[in-house]
Write a protein that binds this DNA or RNA. Structure first.
Lengths: 119, 119
DNA sequence: CTTATATATGAATATGTGTTCATATATTGC
DNA sequence: GCAATATATGAACACATATTCATATATAAG
């Protein structure tokens, strides 16, 4: 749907260009899905712990003080988004980070959080 | 709650250090709240448009093809998280980005999304 | 094959969240 | 004051999602 600008100073042509350059609907959805993964404190804590060390499910359960089942469910989500990988050793499964971007995203988000008057 | 590692090769001391270094519960919550804001495609599109130009509510409504009310609700969330700012001109209110990190976060997320086999 | 252990999974539930609808507020011009 | 316009807001609803409980799967040891 082409848009008509209600405001005075934006040429219709420029508006159209901007709208046309919007990443496709699918890309936007993939982007928001990516961020959704980080939008949960349990998953965030799991990612934090894995950023320091490889851990098995039981340990993540203990570290986060959450039930094993909850951790397994969240690890599945992290797996599907390729943010963690795992290896089996007997009955134990060790998880670790599978993405170099995780650390970067953390760093920038922290910048935002900590800026301003100790907000 | 101090944790006892179920796995063989991690010294209890190191575990404790890792858990102790976890950002406080409040910080984790603020972090996940920050990401939650990006975890919605409507908000993401608004942020994208604002990254290209300042816009009034009616224009954002037209560009996103969503009702004015929905846009206002989302803009409120973006305001509360200090991601956008606004200025009034008559009855019209112009919104723009209020955070330098937004662009960076976008870039890194896109890296993640576009890596691999055109996933 | 049976038991024990570690992890995964499905169903149920409770809580959170985005959109819509109706309406309120704020500004401008008359 | 009143009408018109742009935006904001509260309630309702529909939908998504995180956790729990019970149970299934997988591996190892005997």
């Amino acid at each position: 749907m082409t848009t008509k600008c209600h405001c005075k100073d934006i040429p219709a042509q420029e508006l159209q260009n901007i709208q046309a350059a919007l990443p496709g609907g699918q890309d936007i959805d993939r982007l928001s899905d990516f961020f959704k993964v980080f939008g949960d404190s349990t998953r965030l804590r799991i990612l934090y712990f894995l950023s320091r060390h490889e851990f098995c499910v039981a340990d993540l359960s203990a570290l986060t003080e959450m039930q094993q089942s909850a951790i397994s469910h969240q690890l599945k989500i992290l797996r599907l988004h390729r943010l963690v990988k795992y290896r089996r050793e007997g009955t134990t499964i060790y998880y670790s980070l599978d993405d170099q971007h995780v650390q970067k995203v953390f760093a920038i988000a922290l910048e935002h959080i900590t800026e301003g008057t100790g907000k």
